[in-house]
Each structure stands twice: as C-alpha cells, then as structure tokens.
Amino acid sequence: MNAPFYKFGLFGEDASLLVALFIGIGFGFFLERAGFGSARKLAAQFYFTDLRVFKVMFVAIVTAMLGAFWLSWLGLLDYTQVTVPSTYLVPQIFGGLVFGVGFVMGGYCPGTCCVAAATGRLDGVVHLFGMISGILLFGELYSFIEGFYTSTPMGRFTLPDLLQLPFGLTVFLVVLLALAGFAAAERLEKKFNPSGEIPS
C-alpha cells in the first residue's frame, strides 16, 4: 500500500477530516509538551536564552525530510503526490514578515496560540482572537489584494529545484545544517543563559 493514503483512495473526504483532527490533536499535544504553550518560552529564543523552538522545528523538518526521502526510496511513498503548497515568492516574503512581527509582538505563532488558549492562558486567547480577526479581514479584503497574493508564482518549488542539486545531496546538506544549528544553539544557550534557567 502506498502513501499518501488519501490520494490513493484509502479513505474518503469525511474520513480525511477525522484523520486531520487526530493529527491536529497530536500536533497540539507535542507543541504543549515542548513547552510552546508559554509565550515566555517562545520569546526566549529571541534572547538566545532558550532555543527550543528552533530545535523542535528543525528536528521536525529533518525527521519529515528523512522520512519522505527514505519512504520514497523504498517505494512506500509517492513523493510526487504529496501536496506541496505553491510558492508565491514576494507575497510570501511579505507574509513571512507579517508573521514574524506578529510572533515577536504577541509571543505566539498560530499553532502555539491555540495551544496556549486551550491551556487557559489569557494572552493565548487574545492572540487567537487576533488571528481569527486577521483571517476574517483577509477574507473580506481578498478581492482587493488578489493580484498581489498571486504574484510571482513559482508553483511547486522545493530546495532541490532552487539549488539545482540532486535530491540526496540536498537532504545531506540540510541534515548537516541542522546538526550544525543544534550545536550552535547549545553554545548560544550556554553563553546567554549559563544557569540554564527556563522561564515558565
């Protein structure tokens, strides 16, 4: 049996919503367990005192990448059928900046603010409210910004396309980058937070 399961008709649309629900709960669970329900812990990365966000995210990227590569290599996953969100370069850089400013100001990203709200943190609830308002506003204004939103389309664009390198080499380079990043993160934490105190 090959993955992605939905694309190959293992389950239908209704069941896929249920699968998404369980994956979402799992995602939230691990975010909470990693301590991402606290804005203080999330913000600590900007002061280099606790770089767990960087580490957790990079671990997730490397795990997913190695998984996708090796499952494809074994013939268990049809990589070409995996949905990759399309790249729209300029609007996405702009969106990234909006996201970053919101993250620094509010202390949460979209996933973590849901976690914070679910664990009863008021700042998380406020952030969640802001996010939903933003979504509504975006929806209402979409017809005005559609031109910009769909500008510079690059389609399914991945690192091997950008670097023009073989897939395996790209995987290896990203793993090296991640390992170097983890080592550097540990050093930074020791330098900026020698006592190892974790804000709660």
């Binding site: 090959n2 190959f8 490397v62 795990t63 190695l66 996708a68 590569f69 090796w70 494809s72 290599w73 074994l74 013939g75 049809d78 990589y79 070409t80 059928q81 073989p166 897939f167 395996g168 080499l169 995987v171 290896f172 990203v174 793993v175 090296l176 991640a178 390992l179």
Partner: peptide, 21 residues
C-alpha cells in the same frame, strides 16, 4: 540523522522505484 543523511547522499534518486501514478 547524520547517518541517514549521509546514506541519502549515496542512495541515489528516491524516485527510482516509482512509476507514474
């Protein structure tokens, strides 16, 4: 991770077992 990454370097294309679906 380092080992799997290194093996990916020499494993060749991940698409070799695939036909178009």
């Amino acid at each position: 991770a380092g080992l799997l990454g290194f093996l990916a370097l020499v494993a060749g294309s991940p698409f070799r077992n695939q036909s178009v679906t």
